[in-house]
Amino acid sequence: MTANQPPVVLEIKNLTKKFAVDGGRVLTACDNISLKAYAGQTLGIIGESGCGKSTLVRTVLQIHPATSGEVIFEGQDILKLRGEAARQNRRKIQMVFQDPAAAFNPKMKVKEIVTEPLLNFGLIKKSEVDARAAELLQMVELPVEFMDRYPHNMSGGQRQRLGIARALSLEPKIVVCDEATSALDVSVQEKICELLVRLQKEKGITYLFICHDIGLVDLMCHQVAVMYLGNVVEYIGGGRRISTEGMHPYTKVLLKAVFKVDFKPGERIEPLESEVPSPLDLPQGCPFASRCEFCTDICRQQKPQLKEVAHGHLVACHLVK
């Protein structure tokens, strides 16, 4: 696996994002995160609701400023880009938002929404809007007649595909998919994922793929980062699979909570019952300590660092040597 590892295209270095909240308190959404994404590959990000996945990618896209850290893309720290340089950079890194309803201007028609980035960057003329919109809609399995509709007259999954078409329209180098397929039935989802993979092979696109469906992440991604309470607790690459080689106690808990289609009647599912600690006061030791069945004294005192357990596979847990 080592020999054919493609070059790094995006490197997130020690990225921290804190929000100031009510009453002068500080919420740590991302705590010193370092991650690499490779050319033409997909980096999956999974973890509990609120663990900081969206904040991480939104910070990378400069939707809000980082508290500290760097994001290296094409040899420079893109968090430092301003003005026209930032604008040009945005063309190369596109995002499909988690909540497409909030992301679109409700006064714009579908065809205007999908072609807006192309018009903004002067890549097509006004007269080409209809033809281009039709192509883009077909690409994501939407009827061409939808181009004259408004987004609120579409179903959740139809809107989601609009977001995907729009993000792909600029032929970016990196596409960030934040729960980009969660509102789709599994059959359409499979077609969209096949499309993403085909474009990846043809054009060398890199995806950052945030998704709650562990099965889908496993099938889509070359590497998977598991986040918990603002931290990456496991990073599985190097051809290893989360299903068979995931080691962190939290990763195993996630795998156990998946609903299988072929469950036997009477079979129970055993999710973690307790709540995640508040990101307003992070524990000083292991972030998972309060819910981990293997927790010992050292876990509560010392934060475990990511350690390489095999090539391309890192785990942050005191148990893992």
Binding site: D185, E190, C193, G215, D218, L219
Partner: peptide, 18 residues
């Protein structure tokens, strides 16, 4: 049947290897 066949299951063949 089509829907059931499309459910992504952990550990199956990766999309990029299909």
């Amino acid at each position: 049947k089509e829907l059931l066949a499309a459910v992504p299951v952990v550990g199956e063949v990766k999309y990029y290897d299909r």
